[in-house]
Design a protein around this nucleic acid. Sequence first.
DNA 1: GCCAACGTTGGC
DNA 2: GCCAACGTTGGC
Length: 155
Amino acid sequence: MAYWLMKSEPDAFGIEDLQSRPAKTEPWDGVRNYQARNFMRDDMKKGDEIFFYHSNCKVPGIVGIATVASTPYPDPTQFDPDSDYFDPKSDPDDPRWILVDVKYKRRLKRILSLAEIKDHAEALGDFALVRKGNRLSIMPVSAEQWDYLLGLEKQ
DNA sequence: GCCAACGTTGGC
DNA sequence: GCCAACGTTGGC
């Protein structure tokens, strides 16, 4: 099993929104970055665990845990002219944008803020989240990093 | 609201 | 294929 971190802006879609969805599950649509897409398309497996991260907000940080709840499939919003994520260049016979469903598991007992995570950058090793200029919205987390961060939750 | 960092686009 | 211009991300 692999571990991931996925960013979302709480103003648009936060952990509470995921929790309140039917089946607590939501298609992770709108990803329009190839590297992030490739993680979903090529590497994610059903049951993988995800840190749910709130970005672009007052206290950015990890707020909960979700799981990968589907195999990869085409993001329907790319073919919807009314969607913000419509991509006229995407060919329905060879869809450009692929997503997975994400399912709510639990909230953390406390937010692990980006500031706190940065304080532990050394122990976390080469963690994409705290790399300078990082803008990836989906990134891998190693088992060691996962365990370390969950350990912080209890402190 | 500012701006640094980064990805994408398109002219040449 | 280069690279300037532009748009977006996301912390602060």
